[in-house]
Design a binder for these strands. Structure first.
Length: 570
DNA sequence: TTAGGGTTAG
């Protein structure tokens, strides 16, 4: 290296003045290419830096922004700290590029406090530093801190907005993400245009909320602005349409992506979409097509595939895919895959096989595993398995409301109201809060939320009147309330009343009040739809001649002409 | 030379 630079400087005397920079330039680029390469086979970026130092080449302003990119895991923190000391030593700590790289390094190494300390010490941080510290807080769930920083930024660019919107999405506050997107358009519409990064996060929020109208608007915006739909944006569109109930559109987007543009995530998204919609056979066909196209499946792909088998009741196929996953594709089963298998067997009544899966797992079964086993055991009347699962559930997480609800379900089904009451007291004593049932509908671009038994909606009175009307009309056609799943210790009349307050019934009533005849009704529910609401949706679809689409926490239900796409298997 | 986006059991 030294010989090379000497030769250069001899042949080009003008370069002689820059002699030290030529050497560091070469080393910087070696480090940069090594960071980009991400290969473990050659010298690490850090070892290249050490070699650079051992040859007495001084690092410059360009060295650390490259080098620091390679420190991106918690285990790298101590090396990162040592490099920070080097930065001081060489007097480079006032450079904005170096500062941003350091903030980012601390954030990726898991130390938000160091990142914040450093940021606070910068007299006038530049935009990348502001954006990096927002991202650092958002990625660890400190979304309020991120927002506080965002609000006091002297100026923002499209990355600042995208970063904050993405922060809301990643912490699960999807409504705040959409609200901030609206602010972007109102406050900065004339100056800042959302780009593919912004819209990917917005689509993700729409998907989670089931906000089809919002999602369609974003899609139209993408088309209108001539934005290129790359594989990431395409995958977000597939996911949005699928989670908002329009599987045909999701398939269409996927079909238009072109074979070279489909990576494993795009394939996994469309496979998960099929599973969510109960299109099990089509899902498995897609998986085979993916293999034929030469795309290697990953763990997420197999979650989708196994999920399709669960929803379709395809026990032997599920078993085959579970085996192929490891044997053919070298994917080690994660707890999610075991969860699918337990669910697959227990739903089908093969409780012994489900137990075999639980016993064979290399990791400790979690709440989901016991929940799936309990759910199947309950369905098929295996009381002993129910009891074991329940004990495990409470033992694992005494504050998990889901466990108590499942336990209440069992006791309620057995008519053990005393135990249900005891459980309720226990929940109160331990400060366990039951997740309230919540349904969401979108009418004319506005999201309406309904909580079980709630009265927060301005049209509550009309809604409850409409629920009564629906029930009365269905009763004329033989509808009888199914009170088996009501968890409260009430008399029959009380239980019937509790059922009529379920959030999806309130949402349905509101849609009948506020949408035109013939319009498809779309409801997104946070919990699993209960047996009674499922019957009501089926009958209402026929009686009122409406297609009703309900996304519950498991899958989609398409109610049409008195039937459901899940064939009552959910 | 510094900052950003997509798929995942119930």
């Amino acid at each position: 290296m030294r010989a090379l630079t000497k030769t250069i400087s001899c042949r080009h005397p003008s370069l002689h003045l820059f002699h030290p920079n030529v050497e560091s330039f070469v080393w910087n680029n070696l480090i940069r290419f090594r960071v980009r390469l991400k290969s473990k086979l050659q010298h690490s970026p850090l070892s290249l830096y050490l070699r650079m130092r051992s040859r007495s080449v001084s690092p410059d302003l360009h060295t650390f922004p490259f080098l620091l990119q390679s420190f991106n895991a918690h285990s790298h923190l101590s090396h990162g700290l040592q490099l920070h000391a080097q930065i001081f030593l060489f007097g480079l700590s006032d450079d904005p590029f170096v500062q941003t790289s350091l903030i980012n390094m601390y954030s990726l190494c898991g130390s938000v406090s160091f990142a914040r300390q450093l940021f606070d010490e910068i007299p006038q941080p530049d935009l990348p530093s502001w954006n990096t510290i927002i991202h650092a807080n958002a990625r660890v769930g400190m979304i309020h801190v991120a927002r506080e920083i965002f609000d006091r930024m002297p100026q923002r660019n499209v990355r600042s907005w995208s970063c904050m919107i993405h922060g809301y999405v990643s912490c699960g506050d999807y409504k705040a993400a959409l609200s901030l997107f609206r602010d972007l358009q109102v406050m900065e519409g004339h100056r800042i245009r959302p780009n593919e990064f912004t819209l990917t996060s917005v689509l993700s929020a729409c998907a989670r909320l089931g906000a089809l109208e919002h999602g369609k608007w974003v899609h139209a915006y993408i088309d209108k602005s001539g934005m290129k739909v790359d594989v990431v944006l395409g995958t977000a569109l597939i996911d949005m349409y699928a989670k908002c109930g329009n599987i045909e559109r999701a398939k269409c987007i996927f079909g238009n992506m072109g074979p070279e543009g489909k990576d494993v995530m795009a394939w996994s998204a469309v496979i998960a979409a099929m599973a969510l919609h109960g299109l099990s056979k089509e899902c498995l066909e897609l998986f085979e097509k993916m293999i034929n196209d030469g795309v290697r499946p990953n763990a997420v792909t197999f979650v989708g595939v196994l999920c399709a088998c669960v929803h379709g009741g395809l026990v032997s196929e599920g078993n085959q895919y579970f085996n192929r996953m490891t044997e053919e594709y070298g994917v080690n089963p994660l707890i999610q895959h075991y969860g699918c298998m337990v669910d697959l067997y227990s739903r089908a009544g093969r409780i012994e096989d489900a137990w075999d899966i639980v016993k064979s797992m290399p990791m400790e079964p979690d709440v989901m595993i016991w929940g799936a086993l309990l759910s199947g055991a309950r369905m098929h009347g295996d009381i002993e398995t129910c009891e074991i699962s329940i004990k495990k559930l409470i033992e694992l997480d005494p504050k998990n409301s889901g466990a108590y609800v499942l336990l209440s379900n069992v006791y309620a089904k057995l008519g053990k109201w005393k135990e249900v009451r005891h459980l309720r007291d226990l929940m109160e004593m331990r400060g366990v809060k039951k997740v309230p049932g919540c349904s969401l509908v979108e009418i004319d671009g506005i999201l309406h939320e309904f909580y079980a038994g709630g009265d927060s909606h301005p049209e509550t009175e009309n809604i409850y009147r409409m629920v009564d009307e629906i029930i009365k009309r269905l009763e004329k056609h033989g509808y009888v309330r199914n009170t088996n799943e009501v968890l409260l210790d009430l008399d029959e009349e009380g239980k019937e009343f509790a059922l009529s307050l379920h959030s999806e019934k309130l949402a349905l009533a509101y849609c009948f009040l506020r949408t035109s005849p013939g319009t498809t009704i779309r409801i997104v529910k946070n919990l699993r739809i209960c047996m009674d609401c499922h019957v009501v949706m089926k009958m209402a679809s026929r009686e009122f001649n409406r297609e009703i689409v309900v996304r519950d926490c498991n899958r989609f239900h398409y109610f049409k002409n008195g039937l459901c796409s899940c064939k009552d298997y959910w």
